[in-house]
Amino acid sequence: MNNGWKWENFFEAFPLILKGLGATVGLTFACFAFALIFGFVWIFLKHIPNKPFVWTVDWIMIFIYSTPPLVQLFFIYYALPMIPVIGVTLNPFICAVLGIGIHYSTYISEIYRSGIESVDKGQWEASKALNFSAFDKWRKIILPQAIPPTIPMLGNYLIIMFKEVPLASTVGVAGILTIANSYGALHFAYLEPLTIVGIIFLTLSYPASILIKKLEVKMNTRFDKNTIIAKPNKKVHKKMNFERSDHIV
């Protein structure tokens, strides 16, 4: 048995594993983007004014977030092709994006919901009084107020998803974990490559979480008088002065 820490293994494995980082990060962002968009789909479905429909949607969501993502991933990869008529075989990358993305979209839609609920009731009434269409009301009034406060929470989910993405190796999507694993199998040395994987995750996740803490403070004070005075809307102001003087002349 090849026991003990060997620096030569460490230095040999490190560049190899680092090559897989692009794929891991790429997959993370793909899953995150999918979850962000699909989170809106849930919100949209839940606002359809039909109670039985909304209950059905609720139960589907509960089912999704109460089952492990790994099971969902396996289902999409192995079971979906076996369903008659609608069954399709998808490539592993798409499977991973769908599996992880849909699972986390349920959490993200809950975050959106909390943001939307935090918007003052008067904003809905004012939108109605000004006769906004449903689409413009969401686009111009509700979401611009609902989403910014949730950005730190969304950021946390990005980090969580980054840590969940190695699940994709189970359906054959290569990433840093896959490379570390095959290095271990080849040289029968798992200690160094898996330590490297741990270090890589730590060096990315931890600074990111500090960044998000800072973002949170910024978001919480975004409507405070001082922050706004610090950055006046110069572009509009300039344009306006010009047009005003134009008008007077």
Binding site: D120, G122, Q123, A129, P144, Q145, N233
Partner: peptide, 15 residues
Amino acid sequence: IGMVFQHFNLFPHMT
């Protein structure tokens, strides 16, 4: 119809 509210209900994210 237009309406002015007791609590203004201005849009805080706009000038």
